[in-house]
Design a protein around this nucleic acid. Structure first.
Lengths: 133, 133
DNA sequence: CTGGATCCCCTTGGATACTG
DNA sequence: CAGTATCCAAGGGGATCCAG
């Protein structure tokens, strides 16, 4: 069972979940190479398989299939098959999926805001690494 | 430049960054198996190497070292070496690192809030997968 | 205690060919 | 077009030994 969530603003307002608190869970879900990118694209609306593949850029059929299947299994996207002459399949985010989108938005914002500082720190580190003495 | 955040529930004005918008960047940074867990633990305050290893549970020296090095390189944590008889090294989040913590908090919250629904969807899917006809 | 160096396995994921 | 199956290379990450 989880400990109490007092919610007070103590000087240590950490996210105190000693073990995991589900972070591993989310990351297992969208920590791979493609999931987030697919979710983002679907966040803009319904997409066909091929549209997704073109949009994500670099993803293979295989990986797109796997990614989208897993999202469907988790109830994050819906899959609609149209029995047309050239087969057509639409993918769309569920409400759950859309909530994920907002989360991902946070990631993107953070990245945009802090990437410069991170890259600066990185350059500094690398420079220091080359300096002999 | 970022588009306006109208907040309306239109199907279009989401996080429209056609390509990447830095999401891949964040994920490359904390999408691996351990980084987030280490960040969370450090979010609770300064930690020694051994303390981190005990806290994270399952991480090897090697991976802890690599993880913490990368975080240091990116300017997310500081590393302080005390030249004591038994060597002691403290790791601590920088301001940048703390901002990351808040982000991760969002991930954890989302997970806690939606995991039940996801697991339900998953069970449903798996059940359906077993059904022959 | 901290952490570098090796060895090695196993997963992820890319390329390709094939089916409906 | 959508999806599956197979093969295969690269790298993540674990176990272990060694050093400061």
């Amino acid at each position: 069972m989880s400990v109490g969530h007092t919610g007070t603003t103590t000087p240590e307002p950490l996210l105190s979940c000693d073990d995991d608190c589900g972070i591993r869970d989310v990351l297992d879900r969208l920590g791979d190479k493609w999931t987030v990118l697919v979710v983002v694209e679907l966040g803009a609306g319904r997409r066909r398989f091929k549209e997704l593949q073109r949009a994500v850029d670099g993803i293979s059929q295989r990986m797109l299939t796997l990614t989208v299947r897993r999202l469907e299994r988790d109830g994050l996207v819906t899959r609609t098959v149209h029995a047309t002459v050239p087969p057509q399949v639409d993918y769309e985010l569920t409400d759950l999926g859309h909530s994920l989108t907002r989360l991902v938005k946070g990631l993107a914002d953070w990245s945009l805001a802090h990437r410069p500082r991170i890259e600066a720190a990185r350059r500094e580190w690398d420079a220091k690494a080359d300096m002999p003495s």
